[in-house]
Simulated scan of single mutants.
Amino acid sequence: MSMQLGLEGMPARLVRVTPSRLATWEDCRRRYRLTYLDRPALPRGGPRAASTLGAVVHNALQAVYGAPPVRRSPARAAVEVDRHWSSEGFRDDAQAATHRERARTWVADYVERHAVAGAPEPMGETVGLERWLSAPVGAMVAEGRADRLDERDGDVVVVDYKTGRRAPDADDARRSTALALYALAARRTLRRPCHRVELHHLPSGTVAGVDHDEESLAAHRDRAEAGAVALGAAADALDEDPRLSESLFPPAPGPRCGSCDVRRHCPEGRAAAPAEPAWAGLAP
């Protein structure tokens, strides 16, 4: 357990958090308990097509950017999609084939625009791929895996790939606590300045970015720190008295319960929304 000196020299626990843990805590505390605390872990929902598609695109781009620049090409990118393809969660073979071809096009276009020699929108030198970042930030240890880290003019830029239905904008990048935490952790891990964070939406070709200042990063840090302290305290209280489970981790039923992967263990969630098919998150 990570520690730092607290009040009067007493050791205070540093709570380890990832952006996904924080997001789950903020979204639904019951889902947080069922996902991260209950042991043995309960069975969860099966794979969802949108998540499968996102993983394929991430893996293909990791392979392309992991190769020397002279070996990066749109054709290589399309081949990497085929090499990493999975049909888990799709309705049928026809739907899977349609989205496989879409993914090939997305990744090939992205590489042609950003990654080949003479690309119209080069992104600088890549200094990290699927890089695990972990650094103490206030009362927490912020950690997680960044899709890509680029260096541009001496600064590190955090890049996050997106494949969802909606193209993000600069406000999405500005509001993303995950990207801000990656920026703070990248500073500590790489010992380089890091202010810019970007969302790269492959279906639309959108690059939505923002340059954080110290004030905006501090605001994200404070919010994340408050969540980390709260979830750590709730977990400790549950350890001391399991009877407090429902009061400490109440459900937050709503429309999103239709796609929750722990809905089978949550009566309130099942009542709040009908189950969505595994391919519901795909773009039309």
Rank of each mutant, 00 (worst) to 15 (best):
M1R: 10
M3I: 10
G6K: 03
P11D: 00
S20C: 01
T24Y: 02
T24V: 13
W25A: 09
W25Y: 15
C28T: 03
R29C: 06
R30Q: 14
R30N: 10
Y32T: 06
R33N: 02
L34M: 12
L37T: 13
D38N: 14
R39F: 15
P47D: 10
G54M: 07
A60Y: 01
Q62L: 13
P68D: 11
P68I: 02
P69Q: 11
R71Y: 07
R71K: 12
R71W: 05
R72E: 11
S73F: 13
A75G: 12
A77P: 06
A78W: 06
V79E: 15
V79A: 15
E88C: 14
E88W: 15
G89N: 01
F90M: 02
R91N: 04
R91F: 13
A94P: 10
A97I: 07
T98F: 00
T98E: 14
H99D: 04
A103L: 09
W106V: 03
P120S: 00
P120Q: 04
P122S: 08
G124K: 07
E125D: 12
T126Q: 07
L133E: 04
E143R: 14
D150E: 15
R152Q: 13
R152A: 09
G154F: 06
D155A: 12
V158Y: 05
V159I: 13
V159A: 13
R166N: 15
P168C: 01
A170F: 06
D172Y: 00
R175K: 14
A178T: 13
Y182M: 05
A183C: 14
L184Y: 01
L184F: 04
T189E: 15
R192F: 01
C194T: 06
H195S: 10
R196F: 00
R196I: 00
V197W: 05
V197Q: 08
E198W: 01
P203K: 04
P203A: 09
S204Q: 03
D211L: 05
D213G: 14
E215A: 14
S216I: 00
H220N: 03
V229S: 02
L231S: 02
A235T: 01
A237R: 11
L244K: 15
L248G: 09
P250Q: 09
C260R: 06
V262A: 10
V262T: 11
H265N: 00
E268P: 00
R270D: 04
A272P: 05
A275Y: 09
A275L: 12
A278Y: 04
L282T: 06
L282N: 06
